[in-house]
Amino acid sequence: MKFALVFSLCFIAACAQHQPQFYSFSPAVGRGLGTSFASSGEGRITAVRVWESSGSYIRGFQLRYDYAWTQIYGRKYGEEQELVLYDEEAIVQISGKYSTSNFIYQLIFVTSRGRILMAGQPVGTSFNFYPEHSHCELLLISGRADGNGLTAIAAHWGMVYPANGNNTMMVH
């Protein structure tokens, strides 16, 4: 009995290690001044908030991983917009506009169900981030922000797998 349990645990661990591990990176756009950041959390991204100056640029954003909100990246100032994802829904695209001389002016988050959150103004150069592999989703956002708002943004994509035997998620 003891051997069977040890064998089963080893087999489960080996299977988890052999799941496909797809990762892609959408390189940063923007001027890149200010303090660098990278969002982090446990589990899948389940919501996003964005703050924009009325008729202007993106001040900050925040992600929710499972049930816990991250810190605010950038600044909580101006109009807040929020998108709460449904079960099994994921962010599969981020588009927007940026200026090489100052800020990220627009962010558009697109989900696997075709829903969107659009914040900011369509001013500047366009960008479009998406995963290189199907079945991948947004894992984290990195970039730079100064005291006024977001100055650069990049996206990291991959797969989220259920952890064995519980409801937590493992990100690869």
Score class of each variant (00 low, 15 high):
4 A>C: 11
5 L>A: 14
7 F>Y: 09
7 F>Q: 13
8 S>T: 12
10 C>K: 11
10 C>Y: 13
11 F>G: 02
12 I>D: 08
14 A>E: 09
16 A>R: 04
20 P>L: 11
22 F>L: 07
24 S>Q: 06
24 S>N: 02
28 A>P: 03
31 R>A: 04
34 G>F: 00
35 T>I: 08
37 F>S: 00
38 A>K: 12
42 E>Y: 12
43 G>A: 11
44 R>A: 04
44 R>N: 03
47 A>D: 04
48 V>W: 02
49 R>G: 04
49 R>E: 12
49 R>V: 03
56 S>W: 07
56 S>H: 07
61 F>Q: 07
63 L>G: 03
66 D>T: 13
66 D>Y: 10
67 Y>A: 06
71 Q>R: 15
71 Q>I: 14
71 Q>D: 15
76 K>S: 14
77 Y>C: 06
78 G>R: 06
79 E>V: 10
79 E>K: 12
80 E>A: 10
82 E>A: 15
83 L>T: 05
91 I>N: 01
93 Q>N: 14
95 S>C: 11
97 K>F: 12
97 K>T: 03
97 K>Y: 14
98 Y>V: 01
98 Y>T: 02
98 Y>N: 06
100 T>Q: 11
101 S>G: 09
101 S>C: 05
103 F>M: 03
103 F>H: 09
104 I>Q: 10
104 I>V: 14
105 Y>F: 08
105 Y>D: 10
106 Q>I: 03
107 L>M: 13
107 L>V: 00
108 I>V: 15
108 I>E: 04
108 I>D: 03
110 V>H: 05
110 V>L: 15
111 T>W: 03
111 T>M: 08
112 S>V: 09
114 G>Y: 08
114 G>T: 13
114 G>D: 05
115 R>H: 04
116 I>A: 10
118 M>V: 13
118 M>I: 14
118 M>Q: 15
119 A>E: 00
120 G>N: 08
121 Q>N: 09
121 Q>G: 00
121 Q>R: 11
122 P>E: 14
124 G>I: 12
125 T>D: 12
129 F>L: 02
129 F>Y: 09
130 Y>Q: 13
139 L>V: 04
140 L>C: 09
141 I>Q: 01
144 R>Q: 13
145 A>W: 02
147 G>I: 10
148 N>Q: 08
148 N>A: 13
151 T>D: 03
153 I>L: 09
154 A>M: 01
158 G>T: 07
159 M>E: 10
161 Y>E: 07
164 N>C: 11
166 N>L: 06
167 N>Q: 15
170 M>D: 05
172 H>N: 08
172 H>M: 12
